[in-house]
Write a protein that binds this DNA or RNA. Structure first.
Lengths: 148, 148
DNA sequence: ACTAAATAGATTGATATCAATAGAAATGGA
DNA sequence: TCCATTTCTATTGATATCAATCTATTTAGT
């Protein structure tokens, strides 16, 4: 038979070494683990920290803009809010101006958790920032933003 | 009372704008959606494509090195293999040299799926590559690797 | 050979992610 | 006002992710 079509190993190596999607997913997993480990004493994951920090605003935002800011699906946001609500750190209330919508806000306890997490974020971020050359962080942020 | 401690909004904006973890997670989600959409006709997600491509080797690798290459937890790899095994694209066999371990290999059908997916990857990757300035892709890969 | 330590994966439980779909409420046009 | 459309969110089902824990096997020290 021998009618099987194969991709040469050299092509595999090329894809592995160049695929931006793979490189970003890989870095995302590594950074998530790093921040999850660091933030664990505060009781937060990296995603929960980012979400709660994005809720620390003068006015409670609706879900749509928050999901867009985090570049996540709205259904993902709905799910991500559940554990934070259970812990009493986030409040989800009906928007009186538009009863389809919800308004998200931090509770006093939620704000206290963020206060505890902030210095951890600062030191962890400074650590990974130091792994990049001067100006590398800003360059990286711009490159990543260009992909979105 | 007013004993609630708050983080100033300016700090929130600073964290949002500078957090490399958030920027990488955000880009990871956006890129995953982009490649998932593109690869859907081939029946693969971006992660499945990367995993199967990494199995396209002369010798079937054990799980550990594959998980390390993809920077993912070994338990994640175990779970990710399940749907691919069910579809008959990947074979997981006991390593005769070390009966604790497994050897991963693509089936003929799995290789055929990869062949179908490769041109989709190429065009999609060229498209996002074009969003970066000249030399930006290589720079980005190096910056991301420095974080891992 | 025997046994303690190390290693390779699997399982469980919790959260994260998104597509597809459904529901409720607001909006706009007739 | 009425109805079709749009908008905002929730639910379901599938996969992805990791920590904690477990089993089986190999390796190393004796």
């Amino acid at each position: 038979m021998s009618n099987s079509i194969e991709i040469p190993f050299s092509t595999t190596l090329m894809v592995r070494d160049t695929c931006l999607c793979l490189h970003v997913q890989r870095a995302a997993r590594a950074l998530a683990r790093l921040f999850d480990d660091a933030l664990r004493p505060a009781g937060l994951t990296n995603g929960q920290f980012s979400l709660m920090m994005s809720l620390n605003r003068p006015e409670p935002p609706p879900m749509g803009p928050v999901a867009a800011l985090l570049a996540m699906d709205q259904t993902t946001l709905t799910a991500a809010l559940k554990p934070l609500q259970r812990k009493g750190w986030v409040t989800v209330m009906e928007n009186p101006r538009d009863r389809r919508g919800r308004l998200l806000s931090l509770t006093t306890e939620g704000k206290a958790v963020l206060v505890k997490a902030l210095p951890i974020w600062k030191s962890t971020h400074a650590m990974i920032d130091g792994k990049l050359p001067d100006g590398g962080a800003e360059r990286l942020r711009q490159d990543l933003q260009a992909l979105s």
